[in-house]
């Protein structure tokens, strides 16, 4: 609940942003915690919820996505990955100790060249939507996205909208947040530096600087 994350889809990309706070109750212990995890070459999620559950669950998801990739030589596409993750949460919900993890799953479908964004909560509720928020973002920034989001957004507009949302959170919510942001497109998962004046231009100028560690990068097939 103390968390805050955003997801925005555009013409050929999806942006995920998450706050970087870690702590318990009113005490903040870290303000540089990365709460976005790459799950594959074109898949990542921003997560929040009960500390401990979050790390356990994201590790579990990440390794299973990797296992599927190794076994089938193809990563799960975003719709299939969303269904698998949702099911894990739904089954966990009726177990002795459910995972309390909310997440935004973003991915780029390389077969159709379409971006995907899924809003998933700890109950296993899944919504397939063009823009989404979790935590505080739901209260203050959903309306901002309703107003400014449009179909087929270019990357620059996506970042602009994300900045509007972050601004809303920072001006309306008492808790102070730093934000961590990634962008997924046909080329994979990239880090976005929101402190830069034009992170998209920086990305196209030096993509190697924006690399995100993807679990066990694809092993080249033997010739």
């Amino acid at each position: 609940m103390g968390d805050c994350s955003f997801g925005i889809t555009g013409k050929d990309f999806v942006i995920l942003a998450s706050d970087m706070n870690a702590g318990r109750g009113i005490i903040k212990m870290k303000s540089d915690e990365n709460k976005i995890r790459a799950l594959g070459p074109h898949l990542a999620m921003a997560y929040g919820g009960e500390t401990g559950d979050t790390e356990q669950f994201t590790d579990y998801v990440e390794r299973n996505m990797r296992l599927y990739h190794i076994r089938n030589h193809n990563a799960l596409l975003p719709p299939a990955a969303s269904a698998w993750i949702r099911r894990q949460l739904a089954q966990s919900l009726r177990s002795r100790k459910p995972y309390a993890v909310n997440l935004l799953l973003g991915g780029f479908d390389t077969t159709t060249s379409l971006p995907h964004l899924y809003w998933i909560d700890y109950l296993g509720t899944k919504a397939d939507i063009p823009y989404a928020a979790h935590g505080f973002g739901m209260y203050v920034a959903l309306s901002t996205m309703d107003k400014w989001w449009f179909e087929g957004m270019p990357k620059e507009k996506g970042v602009e909208l994300l900045r509007k949302c972050i601004n809303e959170v920072q001006s309306r919510i008492v808790v102070q947040f730093n934000f961590n942001c990634i962008l997924i497109d046909a080329d994979g998962v990239h880090q976005l530096d929101l402190s830069a004046s034009d992170p998209i231009a920086d990305l196209s100028r030096a993509p190697e600087k924006a690399e995100v560690e993807v679990p066990n990068p694809i092993i080249a097939a033997p010739a």
């Binding site: 809003w119 909560d121 509720t125 919504a127 397939d128 939507i129 989404a132 739901m138 209260y139 959903l142």
Partner: peptide, 13 residues
């Protein structure tokens, strides 16, 4: 509608 109590989350459910 798909909501989370009073908040609307999706309008394609």
């Amino acid at each position: 509608r798909l909501g989370q109590q009073s908040i609307g989350v999706a309008y394609n459910f």
